[in-house]
Simulated scan of single mutants.
Amino acid sequence: MAWIILILSGALEAVWAAALHRTSQATGRRRLVPGLVFLVAVLASTGGLAVAMQSIPTGTAYAVWVGVGVVLTSAYANITKVERATTARLLLLGGIAASVVGLKLVA
């Protein structure tokens, strides 16, 4: 159960990163809804990490949490055309995803 919570918490890391990106408009004014999504997601994400760390070693849990967040945030950025999906970038993100799976296998 801790691993499921950890993976979902990593996914929420991608949610709060995307919401944080959307909090500013071109005019520099802050937008309320993305700000609230950011706040809820960051609290749930770090809370889930804390719960998972009760039964998964700290280093492993943190690496998986960040890895899932990085891969999903980058995927979102590629889909929304905020970043270009180059071959090198996709290969390196695949390496991060493989490392996350590897940490699960050896933990």
Rank of each mutant, 00 (worst) to 15 (best):
L6I: 00
M1N: 01
R29T: 13
M53S: 13
L6G: 00
W16D: 04
L32D: 11
A63F: 10
V82C: 05
L36H: 01
I7E: 04
S99A: 15
W16H: 12
E83N: 07
M1K: 09
V15H: 10
V82I: 14
A2C: 03
M1G: 02
W3M: 05
N78Y: 15
R22S: 14
V37L: 05
E83S: 09
K104H: 05
V106Q: 08
W16N: 01
S24L: 14
A61R: 00
S45G: 01
V71A: 07
R89F: 03
R22M: 15
G47M: 01
S45Y: 07
T58V: 15
L91Y: 12
R30C: 13
L103I: 05
A52Q: 07
G10H: 01
K104D: 03
G10T: 09
N78G: 15
W3Q: 03
G94M: 04
T86I: 03
P34I: 00
V66Q: 06
L43D: 12
W3N: 00
G28Q: 10
T73D: 06
S24E: 15
R22D: 14
A75D: 08
V33D: 06
A50Y: 00
Q25F: 14
T73C: 11
S45R: 03
S24K: 15
F38E: 05
V37M: 02
V71T: 10
V66L: 14
T27R: 11
